[in-house]
Computed example of a mutant assay.
Amino acid sequence: MSKGMAAFALHTERLLLRAPSVALTAAVCDYQQRNTAHFARWDPPYPADFFAPETVAERLAQGEQAFAAGSAYRYWFSLREDPARLVGQVHLSQVARGAFQNAILGYSLDEQAQGQGLMQEALRAVIAEMFGAQVRLHRIQAAVRPENQRSRAVLQALGFAQEGLSRRYLFIDGQWRDHEVYALLNPAWAQDLAP
């Protein structure tokens, strides 16, 4: 593997995490349709055809290309005993190299899978991959609405530190919303080590 090439599948004690693939179209459609109302409070507005199977397949194909190019990394995950049913996803976008070595983190979890520690488990695996020798990012940044207590708790449990508040950061659920900015630094990077 060359630098930037992450593993296409990750395994944890309970989870199977997979990179985007058009083969996941039906499972992704099912995940999104099951959780539309649950995610509405936290998601931006979507075009009318956003959840159509052909649109989902197109996004998965684009995600597969971005993953292979090292410009974005998304993992869809399921319980190991039920691999056909997706219960969450983790996405690292805007991967920057050079002096920054940073990515923006986003994630979502099925409404029925909340409160079981699954997101922490998935994020631990993805962070280990992103900070490992193949991808070797220096920093992962996440933005969370202040009222999203569950998401804030997950980030804090994983060692993310709050760095500030971005006012009117994203247009979510009908208005511009403030977000707290959190970041996690890769402890394997020496202070004076050039990228």
Rank of each mutant, 00 (worst) to 15 (best):
R85Q: 14
E147Y: 08
Q116C: 06
R74S: 11
A125T: 08
E81P: 04
R139I: 05
N148I: 03
R97S: 13
I104F: 15
P53E: 11
A66C: 05
A142I: 02
A103W: 13
E58W: 07
V144D: 03
R152K: 11
V126Y: 06
L123S: 03
E64N: 05
Y73F: 15
P53L: 11
A52C: 08
R139M: 01
V90F: 08
P47A: 13
Q134I: 01
A128W: 08
Q141M: 13
A113G: 07
R59K: 12
I140L: 15
E54H: 07
L158D: 06
L79Y: 13
A72R: 09
Q101L: 15
L109M: 10
E81S: 05
V87N: 03
D49W: 01
Q114L: 03
L86N: 09
Q89F: 13
G132W: 01
G70K: 10
E111N: 14
Q65M: 10
I140S: 00
L118Q: 05
S78R: 01
A57I: 08
L92T: 01
F67Q: 02
L60K: 00
R97A: 01
A52L: 09
A48L: 03
F50D: 08
A68N: 10
M130E: 03
S71Y: 02
L92H: 04
D82V: 03
A68M: 04
V95W: 06
S93V: 05
S78W: 04
I104L: 14
F51G: 03
Q114T: 11
R145Q: 12
A72Q: 12
Q101W: 10
E111V: 07
A157C: 03
G70E: 11
Q112A: 15
V144Y: 11
G115A: 00
S71K: 06
S71R: 10
S151I: 03
V154M: 02
Q62H: 04
Q101A: 11
E64A: 15
P53T: 12
R152T: 10
R150W: 00
Y46L: 14
A99I: 11
Q114R: 07
R80S: 13
Q101H: 13
Q114D: 09
